[in-house]
């Protein structure tokens, strides 16, 4: 029985109350709907234009540039060649720098993870007093990389506080040359990127329902067992995000290696900028940048593949 029949079956005295309107034709104009749909895209247009023009096009341009011939007196020539790829992948200077950059990325990522996890655990426990600690973690983000490196420049200098402390403790007789080493670069980068690791992990930890830990406790699992088998795996999405972010950022970092690193065996980012700004060899510079991007991409893909099962099981 349809609704129309049902209402027709109503007692007559009620039916009389409804004046019969004009015939009901199931028609629907859609004028109102088109306007609603166009709105969002109109609002997004400035952002899309900005990004397509000044992010998309430059990356395309970088690929094109890497295929250009070298210029004479100009940054690039008019012909096209694959020569720069042969150079970038064949020259031990560049390959060595790439290797060092990737190694640096791995060390910095591991260091960040080690320092960040306790902090993330601490922050995830929430509570009003933790605001202060959030501020500590976030404040370096608001201070330029340059300024933070500058602090390490003072701390690690020959007459700096670290050498003074070490000497005061009688651990060394002569001041150590700490600055302008690969260790200094790693230390500086770890410091720069700790917040990038802490925030995603703390976010993931906060999403873990507290009753899971309680369930683990209630089942008689010890703290460490519960941590290893419940908390740590469930925070993996955060670890994964932080790891990828820090790795990519540290391999491609420029300022810190430039300020805290030595002159000699250097990193690919430094060599790339030298080619671009020092030698005006733009095609080679573009090629080196792309090789770096490809290498990072491969490592990240490898990492994703290796951790796929864990990530799938712990997502959300």
């Amino acid at each position: 029985m349809s609704a129309a029949d049902a209402s027709a079956a109503r007692p007559a005295q009620e039916g009389a109350r409804v004046p019969s309107g004009r015939p009901l034709t199931p028609s629907l104009s859609r004028k109102g709907r088109g306007r609603l749909r166009a709105g969002p895209w109109l609002l997004a247009t400035p952002a899309i234009v900005l990004l397509v023009l000044f992010l998309g096009a430059p990356y395309v341009d970088m690929v094109v540039m890497s295929l250009r011939t070298a210029g004479h007196g100009t940054p690039y020539g008019t012909g096209f060649t694959l020569h720069h790829y042969a150079e970038a992948l064949g020259n031990p200077v560049y390959l060595g720098a790439l290797g060092r950059s990737l190694m640096l990325g791995a060390i910095v990522t591991a260091g960040c993870l080690l320092l960040s996890y306790p902090i993330a655990l601490h922050l995830a426990k929430a509570g009003r007093s933790h605001l202060f600690f959030y501020a500590i973690v976030i404040s370096p983000l608001l201070v330029g990389v340059l300024v933070r490196n500058f602090g390490w420049l003072i701390i690690l200098s020959v007459s700096g506080p670290l050498n003074q402390v070490l000497r005061g403790l009688g651990l060394i007789d002569m001041p150590l040359r700490l600055l302008f080493t690969q260790g200094a670069v790693a230390l500086g980068l770890i410091h720069v990127f700790v917040p990038f690791m802490v925030l995603p992990i703390a976010g993931a930890l906060r999403k873990i329902p507290p009753d899971l830990a309680e369930a683990s406790d209630a089942l008689g699992a010890g703290r460490w067992f519960g941590f290893w088998h419940v908390t740590l795996p469930l925070s993996f999405p955060g670890i994964q995000a932080g790891t990828i972010l820090v790795f990519v950022l540290s391999v491609s970092a420029y300022v810190t290696p430039a300020l805290l690193g030595g002159q000699g065996r250097t990193f690919l980012s430094i060599l790339t900028v030298q080619e671009l700004l020092g030698s005006f060899a733009w095609p080679l510079g573009a090629t080196l940048a792309l090789v770096m991007a490809a290498a990072m991409g491969l490592v990240v893909l490898g990492f994703l593949a290796a951790t796929r099962r864990l990530a799938e099981r712990t997502a959300r």
């Binding site: 009901l24 629907l28 859609r30």
Partner: peptide
């Protein structure tokens, strides 16, 4: 916005 049908208020469609 409905996909079909009509809503009349005082005899006029309001869609």
């Amino acid at each position: 916005a409905p996909d079909g049908g009509d809503i009349l208020v005082d005899g006029r469609s309001i869609l």
